[in-house]
Design a protein around this nucleic acid. Structure first.
Lengths: 356, 356
DNA sequence: ATCATCAATGAAAACGCTTCCACGAAGAAT
DNA sequence: ATTCTTCGTGGAAGCGTTTTCATTGATGAT
């Protein structure tokens, strides 16, 4: 019991020394006890725990991080936190990581400028133990910058070569949606994309879904009309804008496949404005099963962002625990068609003429 | 130029010593130069900057935090990140704070259990320089725990005594919505609340909006029927559930005021299911001007969560800069009625009978 | 010329932990 | 009994910065 030689460090918050003094042990033992680590006599540990609680001691993350080389924090890099998909993924991620005692530092990188500045200054250098990127459109430069950090990285949505990832089969999901329309008898099916006005954003999912759309059409022997593939800005508005573009074409499609539900909803809005009946005159299908989709009776291909979030978090925790597991796991989560009221067989003005 | 005696610290990332060596100065000067601080010769600073860039040196936040006592991080405590309101506030907050070089640590505290655990262990102790709480229903105990931290705190949505806050005038917003209905001639106006199933959650806004609702009715000389105030769970579903409850009452209201748009949308959905025409047979008004409200043509009282986020962030930055400014600022942001298609004068079956 | 002043810089002491290493005391093995 | 482990603990060296204080020329005032 010689630990009470020292006085409390600086007047403020209790330090590990105070706990050590109160428990009558060395700071080393306090540290060990508090982290439920090895070699501490149960009785000693209890004494330390009591002392810590009495002083309501909380170890300085800074100091322990500096000493241990770990930060107990994870960066979550997300382009648009306000989008349903992303906020839901983030919710899943935080729920899992909090359980494991990791803090989540949120990096909201909406614009290309944001991203460039971010990757240039690399504020994560020694700030986090791991990184989770959500559907981030990373340039090679960005990827390199991340790699240089040499810490575990998990990607949700967009595959990054050599990095564990969680995603859905974008192509298959798109095919599911389009096949559904084809089976209903649609032959002129439009595609609506919604991409950030950001020049170099290039959501991977957008391209893949478009690809799935084309594959499905081809497989059904339908011709592909590039005029039927339109894009609007990212988000709700984009759907309306893109739909307006379709509505101003020379020949209307009978169905629209929107690459995600928010676009589909925007499209529904435009159709209502335009006085076209859904699904009678126009079928609309999306991807997501956005929480609003039920309200709008939108036929869609469901995915679960929350599960993607929890899965990604678990993957990251694994990487954190054991540095290298080759090959990097790639989890592909299932999707399924949800039938609702915005899709129906096309209304054929002159059934005879259209049938071939 | 005696600084090259020391070797790089530990093999890994460059440390301040490496930069010092490369620039031929002392670590002290590097530290000063890099933070654009006082007294450094311009030429020297440039040399340091170049060296730092060449090594792509990034100071360890841990170490600098430990040494300086500042973390350059802010905690954002939010109950439901997936709700439009919260995600939008968070977006506003992060956009401002990133500009000032602060990291945002997200604490997602959905359930009472989460909150209790959080406030008990107080993981923010030395982790952040400031805290932003979004519509958190804090018990006195929680508030005390936060106060004990003795770091700047800003509250959005729910007022915490003695703490700077940003909010809207909940009562006035509710009155705006209800007055609108009253002016349209409605006399039986229902109130729909949506509260977490969490026993002790008690959103302050909910109570205040309910109060505004009653005030408006009283001011108009309308009787208050407690059967017309119903509550459902928090979120979209709640609106439908609450509406169903109203629809199963003995006498229907002619209008419904939902305390926020997501509830209103849920109510709209239930009404559609029930076959009641909106606004012909039932008017619906919400609060928020949720991004989906336009799509649903929902009459609502608009508020701007993004502005609330940016405002709160600025308030926090001020507190961070100058410890005490008395009295704590309380910013009340404006709201305004947005007229859309879900509200209209009541359809009177027998106009004579109902008129008094 | 001489001394006080000041700008620019370096040396070194924190900051509050973690963890390696050493050490003594028990118990196990011989 | 004696030596070998193992267990529980303390001492002390970092971890990578910031910051105080001292130092050194140089500048301006007397």
């Amino acid at each position: 019991m010689n630990a009470d030689i020292r006085r409390p460090p600086t007047g403020d918050r209790p330090g590990i020394l105070d706990v050590a003094a109160l428990a009558g042990v060395s700071p080393a033992t306090v540290s060990r006890s508090l982290r439920g680590q090895s070699k501490v006599a149960p009785e000693t540990r209890q004494r330390v725990l009591d002392a810590a609680r009495e002083l309501s001691y909380v170890a300085s993350p800074q100091a322990s991080g500096l000493a241990s080389g770990r930060t107990r924090a994870v960066a979550v890099v997300v382009p648009f936190i306000t989008r349903w998909f992303f906020s839901t993924v983030v919710a899943g991620v935080t729920d899992v990581l909090r359980e494991s005692g990791y803090d989540v530092i949120l990096y909201h990188l909406g614009s290309a400028a944001d991203r460039d500045r971010f990757f240039e200054r690399m504020p994560l250098a020694r700030r986090v133990d791991g990184i989770l990127t959500l559907s981030m459109p990373l340039t090679d430069e960005h990827t390199l910058a991340l790699r240089a950090l040499d810490i575990p990285l998990v990607s949700v949505g967009s595959p990054v070569p050599g990095v564990p990832s969680v995603r859905i089969d974008e192509i298959a999901a798109a095919q599911t949606a389009v096949n559904h329309l084809i089976h209903q008898g649609h032959e002129r099916i439009a595609f609506i994309a919604g991409v950030p006005d950001d020049p170099d954003f290039g959501f991977v999912s957008s391209e893949l879904r478009h690809h799935g759309y084309r594959l499905a059409l081809e497989a059904a022997g339908l011709s592909i009309d590039d005029n039927l593939s339109v894009a609007g800005p990212y988000g709700l508005d984009g759907g309306g804008i893109a739909m307006a573009q379709l509505l101003s074409g020379s020949v209307l499609p009978t169905a629209v496949f929107a690459e995600y539900d928010e676009l589909a909803m925007g499209a529904l809005w435009a159709l209502r404005r335009a006085g076209l009946a859904v699904p009678h005159q126009m079928s609309v299908v999306g991807i997501d099963n956005h929480e609003m989709s039920q309200l709008m009776d939108l036929t869609t291909v469901a995915q679960s962002p929350h599960t993607q979030g929890t899965t990604a978090a678990h993957l990251l925790l694994e990487s954190l625990a054991s540095p290298t597991s080759t090959p990097p796991p790639e989890v592909v989560l299932p999707t399924h068609l949800v039938l609702r009221a915005t899709s129906a067989p096309p209304f054929r003005r002159t059934a005879a003429r259209k049938r071939r």
